[in-house]
C-alpha cells in the first residue's frame, strides 16, 4: 500500500513546483505586458487579471467537476459587498477585506453547494441563474445596510510611499494592476494544484461518471459541495477586486456578467486553465478591437453599440458547435496531429 501512496506524493511535489513557476510566470508576463501598454490598456489588463479569477472558478466548477453555474457574477457580488462593507463600515484595511471576502464567499458557496449537490444539469443552471438575478436586488431591498442602487464607493487607494520610492511614480492604473496581480497569481497556483492533485482527480471522476465515482468510494455530495466552496471563494475574491475599481453596487454585477464569465471559459476551453486565460483576454479585448474596426468603417452607433455582444455571441455559438473544447482544445488537437 505504501507503494501506492508514494508516487502520488512525489507527483504533488512536482506539480507544486511547476504551478509555482507558472504563477510567477503569469505575474511577470502581466507586468511586462503592462509596460508595453498605455494607461487604458493597463486598466484593461487589470480587468483581465480580476475577471480571470472568476473564470478560473468556472474552470473548476464546470470544467473539472461538471457542474454548471450561471450565477458566478452573483457570488462576485457577495465578495464585493463583503469586502466593501468591511472597509466602509468597520474601517478594515483593503487587503484584509480581500482575504476575508474569500472566506465570506466560501461560506456562501457552502450553503449554495449544499443545495446544488441535490441538483444537476438544467436544474442547477436554472437555480444559479435565479441567484444571479436575485442577489443584486437584495442590496436594494435592504437599502439602509447595502446602500441600495447607489452602492458603496470604494477604491484601491494610492500606492504606499515605499513602493513609489522603489519604482518611481506609479499611476492609478499601474497601482490597480499591482493590487490585483498577486491575487491572480495565487489563484492560478491554487487552481493548478487543485486540478492536478487528488481533489481534482476526484472531481473529474464525479464529472465523468457519478455512479462509477460512487462505486470507487467517492462521496459525491461532499465532493460537489467542496467544489462549490472552492469556486465560490475564487469568484468572491474576483468580485471584491472588481468592486474596488470604484463602486460596489447592483449595476456593477448584472446578470450578464455571469454569462460573460461563462462565455470566456467556453471560448477558451472549459477544462483548461490556459483556455481560461485566453478566453478572458478575448472577452476583454475583443470589444476594443471591434470598436477600432467599426471606427475605421464609420459604422453608425446604432449598429456599432451592439457589435461587440453580437460578435462574442457568434463566437460562443461557433465554439459550441464546431469546437466544444474551446481554443485550448483546438490547440491540443493540432499538437496531437503533429505528433502522429
Amino acid at each position: 500500500m505504501s507503494k501506492g501512496i508514494k508516487p502520488v506524493r512525489l507527483k504533488y511535489k512536482v506539480i507544486g513546483g511547476r504551478s509555482t513557476l507558472l504563477s510567477v510566470a503569469l505575474f511577470l508576463f502581466f507586468i511586462l505586458l503592462s509596460k508595453q501598454f498605455d494607461a487604458y490598456n493597463q486598466s484593461q489588463l487589470t480587468n483581465i487579471a480580476t475577471l480571470l479569477i472568476a473564470v478560473f472558478s468556472i474552470t473548476l466548477l464546470t470544467g473539472a467537476s461538471g457542474q454548471i453555474s450561471l450565477g458566478q457574477g452573483a457570488i462576485m457580488a457577495v465578495g464585493g459587498y463583503g469586502s466593501a462593507l468591511l472597509v466602509t463600515r468597520l474601517g478594515l484595511s483593503m487587503w484584509l477585506a480581500f482575504v476575508l471576502a474569500i472566506f465570506i464567499s466560501a461560506l456562501f458557496g457552502l450553503f449554495l453547494g449544499l443545495a446544488a449537490a441535490r441538483l444537476s444539469g438544467p436544474y442547477l443552471a436554472g437555480t444559479t441563474l435565479v441567484m444571479a438575478l436575485a442577489i443584486p436586488s437584495i442590496a436594494v431591498r435592504f437599502e439602509s445596510f447595502f446602500s441600495g442602487d447607489v452602492g458603496l464607493s470604494v477604491d484601491y487607494g494610492t500606492p504606499p510611499t515605499w513602493l513609489s520610492n522603489l519604482l518611481g511614480e506609479i499611476s492609478i492604473e499601474q497601482w490597480s494592476l499591482y493590487v490585483v496581480l498577486p491575487f491572480t497569481a495565487i489563484a492560478l497556483f491554487a487552481v493548478l494544484n487543485l486540478s492536478n492533485t487528488r481533489a481534482g482527480r476526484t472531481w473529474r471522476a464525479v464529472r465523468d461518471n457519478e455512479v462509477s465515482a460512487a462505486l470507487a468510494g467517492i462521496n459525491i455530495g461532499r465532493t460537489k459541495v467542496v467544489v462549490f466552496v472552492c469556486a465560490s471563494a475564487l469568484a468572491g475574491l474576483s468580485g471584491a477586486l472588481y468592486g474596488f475599481r470604484g463602486l460596489v453596487a447592483p449595476s456593477v454585477y448584472p446578470t450578464d456578467l455571469s454569462l460573460t464569465l461563462l462565455t470566456a471559459a467556453v471560448i477558451g476551453g472549459l477544462r483548461s486553465v490556459g483556455g481560461a486565460i485566453f478566453g478572458t483576454f478575448a472577452i476583454v479585448f475583443l470589444p476594443d478591437l471591434i470598436e477600432k474596426i467599426t471606427k475605421n468603417f464609420n459604422v453608425p452607433e446604432t449598429i456599432g453599440n451592439y457589435l461587440p455582444s453580437l460578435t462574442i455571441g457568434i463566437l460562443l455559438l461557433l465554439t459550441v458547435i464546431l469546437n466544444p473544447r474551446g481554443a485550448a482544445g483546438a490547440l491540443e488537437h493540432i499538437r496531437h496531429r503533429r505528433k502522429h
Partner: peptide, 25 residues
Amino acid sequence: MNLRKPLILTVVASALVGSLAISSV
C-alpha cells in the same frame, strides 16, 4: 488537463490578442 505546452502557448496567444489592442501611445 494537460498544462504544459498548451498553457505556455495560450499565454503567448493571449499576449498577441492583447498586443493587437494596443493603441498608439
